[in-house]
Amino acid sequence: MLTSDGFIRILNLLSVGVLVTGMLILWRRSLLSAVQIFGVQSLLLALMAVWIAFYTGAAHLYLIAFLVAAIKAVAIPVLLSRIIRRLDVYTEIEPYIGVATSLLVGAGLVVVAYFVMQPVADATNLPTHNALPLAFAMVLLGLFITVSRKKAVTQILGFLVLENGIFMLAVLATYGVPTIVEIGVFLDLFVGILIMEVLVYRINQTFESVDTHVLDELRG
């Protein structure tokens, strides 16, 4: 049996890895590589779920980890890359908030998450409780990506990062919600992405651009 110290060490490495991929999405202007980084992030989350399942013996987490890997690390990145190629929009040229500033804001959000989640982390005595602030930081990062970027594809990506953060929070705080709920969430997510894909095509057809700020303008 693994010692709890070794378990926590690897878990912490994985959770920091997930957070760093969140930062990398903020860093990269290239949409394709941001999508790939999202795939890596989901893969790390799946590994984390497997690791927790292995340690705690919560067998349903294996199934969930498989679903995360299949849907978020493979299917959704493939879908998003297809959108990017079809629309021929490859870079986030001018985000609302510059890349350098948004990286600093991102680091600041991690500090905020630390102070907000510290009481929660202290309230539980699970071995995973230390990584809780990082999961919450992912939620904030996802939200920030969504509001600070112009391209519809990047905004979808921000939403997905937010969803990853919620999933990470659930896995760390309660070793995952019941399987049926989790499967429901994945189904919703997948269908949601499909609908968003159609929506992005429509935006592109109507405005000949996927910059969402053109939606603010009135057209007569």
């Binding site: 860093w27 500033t101 680091a107 500090v111 602030p133």
Partner: peptide
Amino acid sequence: VPELLAGSFAIALLAIISFYVL
């Protein structure tokens, strides 16, 4: 270049934070 260095700053800040969080 500032973007690159802001990225490294964010990573260094994460390093310090993760020392206190984890």
